[in-house]
Design a protein around this nucleic acid. Sequence first.
DNA 1: AACGCTCACAACCGCCACGGG
DNA 2: ACCCGTGGCGGTTGTGAGCGT
Length: 247
Amino acid sequence: MGRSPCCEKAHTNKGAWTKEEDDRLIAYIRAHGEGCWRSLPKAAGLLRCGKSCRLRWINYLRPDLKRGNFTEEEDELIIKLHSLLGNKWSLIAARLPGRTDNEIKNYWNTHIRRKLLSRGVDPVTHRPINGHGSDTATHFERKPVAIGFGPDQELDKISSSEESSAWQQQQHQHQHQPKWPDLNLELCISPPSQQQQPLEPVDGGGDQPQSLCFSCGAAVESQKRHKECKCRDLIRLSTGMLDYRNP
DNA sequence: AACGCTCACAACCGCCACGGG
DNA sequence: ACCCGTGGCGGTTGTGAGCGT
């Protein structure tokens, strides 16, 4: 019983990738692009699971990866975004060019968690740990100005359950000033009839875009994944506007 | 030198959402 | 409306390097 495996595991390699495997994967994707991951290993002559190929490419072989140590600015940005988004590593990674969700997740668990704890800040709630002053807190205020309950629950995707409780705590402390005034974290969700301003269609056509790419901000017409950047972070415009980028 | 421990990070696993048929 | 295949995400594990004893 149980789920069927994603691939034939009996004849697939596991563990660390070799240079030859990397070269094969790179060569194949350069020649054919990122296509069907399931069929890619066979086509590329790799004895690997498609998922493994995807992970290797996304996290380590992509040419646009930055690699190297995280800067202090990146550290702080990750902390800010985690405070807002919780463990939504893919969304956080989308705001850090050249960084991957896996890399950020690892970095969080090995470095930033400890950094926050040393500051006396709970890395989950971003609230001061008992006995520590609020001066060291990294939390900041989230303001859902208007929340409309449309057919979609995209807002739920953004607030994980544990994050939600942290956020609820923050709601009781509205009197505090934001700790990060440079980051526009206002969340505004409103019903379609109350949209504050229309977004420009991607192709300049007359039709209103139906979705907004959360990664690059592009307005796209389909609810499908954003083809340009391959991201899935589409905010349906029927639920309103969501933007926490700097103006 | 040998051993044990800790840390960092690459990789895997299971689950879920989405889209097509 | 339902089922199935696929891609993607987040949590967890495995492993090698570095360090102290």
